[in-house]
Write a protein that binds this DNA or RNA. Structure first.
Lengths: 329, 329
DNA sequence: CTGAAAGCGCTTACAG
DNA sequence: CTGAAAGCGCTTACAG
């Protein structure tokens, strides 16, 4: 039961009457090393007895890479959706012996010092990576997987297709007969990356479906301001609005109530994210689900295979993004 | 511009024409080492030139502790509030050169292998720590700070006073004249820890204020089920309910709408957390704010001081928990 | 003020 | 099948 200040493999070796190498072999189940069952037993017993835990630092130094996966995120605020993604990722990765360290960086900044310092087994990034960094990480044997917002075909890249999201919002609205569509953008400039793409999807879909271009208005996190936006849309003949995300949709709905209007009759509203609270909006919120659990699972599988040097798993079917119809649109 | 596969301090030393020790001294600004300005310049130039980044593993091995702080969490689901806490913590700690690694463990499990493996500079835990672990971490020079749910007086412990939260909910309701109070508990058993304490606070306050004991009913994340609970409360003469948290409050409010009732006239509702969406509930949700940003800031300060061996900062005023009055109660 | 050298705790060829 | 030894890249007494 762990007494010595610091129990090392050497201590275990001595206690078990074997060499340090043997301790390492049994602990790591090193292949092509035939350890006799009794030896293995004795080592394991000594390990348990002394409460030995291998030093991550020593192992990392020796092997040249640590058991962490570096998660690189942009500086935008972490909504419930991304928070869930991170949580699932941590959970899944922990299951295969990996720790995740999250780091925020400004888009376009070099990330070299980050990974050189940690020598992670893999890096998962949601920010675009400089080609030089990509190359150097490759040389250093670090598996890189990117979760990008735009679609892209590359085994090690997973896309969170924001454009598709915008498109889906419009298609759903158009199907219900809406011709003049509004777009509620959040006030936060940090979210620019997501916003630009979602809006692009909305615009493209409007054009393709022969609708007017969307009437884009900011909807800050404030009921009064949301109410003003709602009135403006009504005057402009807008009958349905795509909200940037569910939180914006909630603000919008609150603004409508203040303005004495209700969804979907006065103005239909569709969000993005399908947050846990969406069913409890008034009226229950129609929204787009990104199926973040599928994304997280795939990311974990990608990392696992990438580190093991196995062939990468195929990207899950891209219909991962679906509309969840409730009552607001 | 970083070319060699691996740039070490030795490379920098060679390039700068100094010894490896000197490189270490200038990089770490080691005190009591007088390095001539020119030498320092040359070293820094070589560092920049070669793109040198010290190896975290080597440093950790040598120094006996790494630059990570281990965040130990129970297995409960991470709501928006805790997610925000973690995010702030990561942000604040990153600012002082520390990475956080989050790990979930079952309450009561030993965490020795965890910290022995990483040798973190500090551990922040939201699960109760075994005294043996506490002692051993102390011996190992690891600073431990606990964010506990119950109040406790200990410099290195920060309390998230759940009992106080329940009490505050009831006091607010009683002040508005309510005598028969309901309690909406979530369906998820994982949340037991928080629940028990919040409910204890509610019960105590009811007794102290001479009210009946609370009528506790489960409110699952389902509008129909919530509606049933609401009807039952009404029949029992309950006029106000404390929700376990804001999410439960949202479900409750949705159930009320389904039952044709509205808050606060038919049933007053008060939540906990003050999530960003609370103002957009219908009606806007009255709730308890735990001021998680204050908590996070204090935790960071605690860790910083603890690692530096400086006197610990005083606990912020305990009125950190406040009621935010909106319209639902 | 600067350098040579030991040693942190592992893993892994390499001998035997 | 098992062990002795080198070496991963640092930091830090210790000499000079």
């Amino acid at each position: 039961m762990a007494k010595a200040l610091k129990v090392t493999a050497k201590d275990v070796a001595r206690a078990a009457g074997v060499s340090q190498a043997t301790v390492s072999y049994v602990i790591n189940d090193t292949p092509h090393q035939r350890i006799s069952p009794e030896t293995r037993e004795r080592v394991l017993a000594a390990v348990a007895d002394l409460g030995y835990t291998p030093s991550a630092a020593a192992r990392a130094l020796r092997k040249g890479s640590s058991d962490v996966v570096l998660l690189v995120m942009p500086h935008y605020p972490i909504g419930p959706n991304i928070a869930a993604l991170i949580e699932r990722l941590e959970e899944g990765l922990e299951g295969i012996g990996l720790s995740v360290v999250t780091r925020r960086i400004r888009e376009g900044r070099p990330m070299a010092s980050l990974w050189r310092e940690m020598m992670p087994a893999a890096v998962v990034t949601m920010v675009t990576v400089d080609p030089v960094d990509v190359a150097e990480m490759g040389q250093a044997g670090i598996f890189l997987t990117q979760a990008l917002l735009a679609p892209r075909s590359d085994e090690a890249t997973l896309s969170l297709p924001q454009i598709l999201i915008g498109r889906l919002q419009v298609e759903h609205l158009a199907q219900a007969g809406h011709r003049r569509i509004g777009y509620a953008e959040p006030a936060n400039p940090l979210v620019e990356n997501f916003l630009r793409l979602r809006l692009e999807g909305v615009r493209t879909a409007c054009v393709e479906l022969g609708l007017d271009l969307p009437d884009v208005r900011p909807v800050p996190f404030d009921t009064d301001a949301a109410a003003s936006a709602v009135r403006a849309w009504r005057e402009a003949g807008v009958t349905a609005v795509c909200a940037y995300n569910d939180e914006t949709a909630f603000a919008l709905l609150a603004g409508m109530r203040l303005a004495g209007l209700s969804a979907p009759s006065d103005l239909a509203v569709i969000g993005v994210d399908n947050i846990p609270l969406a069913p409890f909006a008034f009226p229950p919120l129609t929204t787009i689900d990104q199926h973040i659990d599928v994304v997280a699972k795939h990311l974990v599988a990608l990392v696992r295979a990438g580190i093991a040097g196995e062939p990468l798993p195929a990207t899950p079917r891209s219909e991962a993004v679906t509309v969840v119809v409730r009552q607001s649109a």
